[in-house]
Amino acid sequence: MITETISFASVNVGDKLPGKEVPITSALIVGGALASRDFTSVHHDKKVAQANGLPDVFMNILTSNGLMGSYVTNWTGPDATVKKIALKLGAPNLPGFVMTLVGEIKAKDDSTGIVDIEVIGENNVWGMHMAGTVQVQLPQ
């Protein structure tokens, strides 16, 4: 369990978060869809996904959003507060791919203690899956 929280003073613009590899499996795609209560067929039914032009089931945007959130809060620790998550989706995540997450601090607001972290998730087959920004308030 992660118990330390990163302090606002200890981070600087340009700092990079440790990269993380996320193996994309059917279990993650279907599990993420159900955890986010998204029963749209393309996220659990391969035949429907194929009818929509993709080789297999693909990750829903709520799971991508959740992975972006967990990537950042696992780094910040428990006493940080997420203020905003904004992401743009690119290529789909399919079973068998590996997504690599990287993050970099792009801005730091001394008055509010909020830092902007750019997060990019790229898969090894089709490239950019998601790119976005997580704003998180860190303790002083």
Partner: peptide, 16 residues
């Protein structure tokens, strides 16, 4: 319960 289910899948590691 739904939080735990979510945290398991997303790899959330915070005790909070």
């Amino acid at each position: 319960a739904m939080i735990r289910h979510w945290a398991e899948v997303m790899g959330d590691e915070l005790g909070t």
